[in-house]
Simulated assay, not measured.
Amino acid sequence: MRGPNHQLPYYFVPHPSRHPLAAALSLLLMMGSLATWINGDGWAKYTFFAGLFSLFWVVYHWFGDAIHESETGHYGKRVDLSFRWSMSWFIFSEVMFFLGFFGALFYARLFALPDLGSLSGRLLWPDFTAVWPNTGPADLITHFGSMSPWPLPTINTALLLSSGVTLTVAHHALRANHRRKTAIWLAATVGLGVIFLFCQGFEYFHAYHELNLKLTSGAYGSTFFLLTGFHGFHVMLGATMLSVVLYRVIRGDFTPEKHFGFEGAAWYWHFVDVVWLGLYIVVYWL
């Protein structure tokens, strides 16, 4: 159904697509394999990466179809509005995802640990001290060192905060139709994200080999690696999204008035920045 101006459809309804089913199966394979891999089955790492590659393949073709539909004039204001609401709800779901892990950390520190250190707990484990981090009441966990906010986490914080600034500059440049300036500042944002990932990888190497801190190091180790690891995965996704946007900026896809592809990726990146600030304070300082 077309609107009064007969230029754009009132609302675009795409053809039936295999992409949603393929994405769901890829996610099922990837996350099921990840859970199995964490529990010690070595073969699961191969199926995890197979699922990850499959997911990226699906997303590549799915987003490619959406970009083609946008560039060929199928999307009007109502579709643009639906994309904005969809991205908003997606980011909200990501907020709830991280709140679950933050909630587990707070429960372990504010409820479980003091309860184990109470009078009834001391009757069972007289030598237990309710301090964080902890090796557990029965001292079954190999001793490990805790992570310090200096220097890598603080450097990573500076990197992500700087990337938020460079992305904002790129957005203003796009709205002013300065395409070259947009591409330069957007490339700087992607570069800062990549540096962040390399620093986090070095931090994990330090944790494993020098602090003996692993995913199996009690509540501290599991919450640390799940929070920082999933955040790093989101940084990788955000950098991938911004790389695609950078390619489209260079190709000339966006205009100062119509560039939600850029804005959606920017929203996601700023969300990743905010999550890191909370993580930096709660995990490394408190």
Score class of each variant (00 low, 15 high):
Leu213Tyr: 06
Leu21Pro: 01
Phe49Glu: 06
Leu192Gly: 06
Arg179Phe: 00
Thr182Gly: 08
Tyr10Gly: 11
Val165Ser: 04
Asp65Leu: 13
Met87Val: 12
Ser162Val: 10
Tyr10Thr: 12
Tyr220Trp: 02
Thr223Lys: 08
Ala219Pro: 00
Ser82Leu: 10
Phe92Glu: 01
Gln200Pro: 02
Arg180Ile: 03
His172Asp: 06
Pro114Cys: 05
Trp150Arg: 10
Leu167Thr: 00
Trp43Ala: 11
Ser33Thr: 03
Met241Gly: 11
Phe97Met: 10
Phe128Val: 08
Ile155Cys: 10
Thr154Ala: 14
Ile155Ser: 11
Asp115Cys: 06
Leu242Ala: 05
Pro151Ser: 11
Pro149Asp: 13
Ala44Asn: 03
Val274Arg: 03
Phe98His: 03
Trp57Tyr: 14
Leu186Met: 11
Pro4Arg: 09
Ile91Asn: 02
Leu237Cys: 10
His68Val: 07
Leu167Glu: 02
Thr168Arg: 14
Met241Tyr: 13
Pro16Lys: 13
Ile195Asp: 03
Met236Tyr: 12
His270Pro: 06
Ile141Tyr: 10
Tyr204His: 04
Leu211Tyr: 07
Asp253Trp: 10
Lys181Asp: 10
Phe106Ala: 13
Gly229Phe: 06
Val13Leu: 14
Thr157Asn: 09
Gly76Glu: 04
Arg180Tyr: 04
Arg175Cys: 08
Glu263Thr: 15
Phe56Trp: 15
Asn134Ser: 15
Gly229Ser: 08
Tyr60Trp: 14
Tyr204Thr: 05
Phe83Gln: 13
Phe56Lys: 08
Phe230Tyr: 12
Pro14Ser: 12
Ser162Ala: 11
Leu152Pro: 03
His61Gln: 14
Glu263Val: 15
Gly40Phe: 05
Gly64Tyr: 01
Asp127Arg: 06
Gly136Asn: 01
Tyr220Gly: 07
Leu160Cys: 01
Gly145Tyr: 03
Gly73Ile: 02
His231Asn: 05
His209Gly: 04
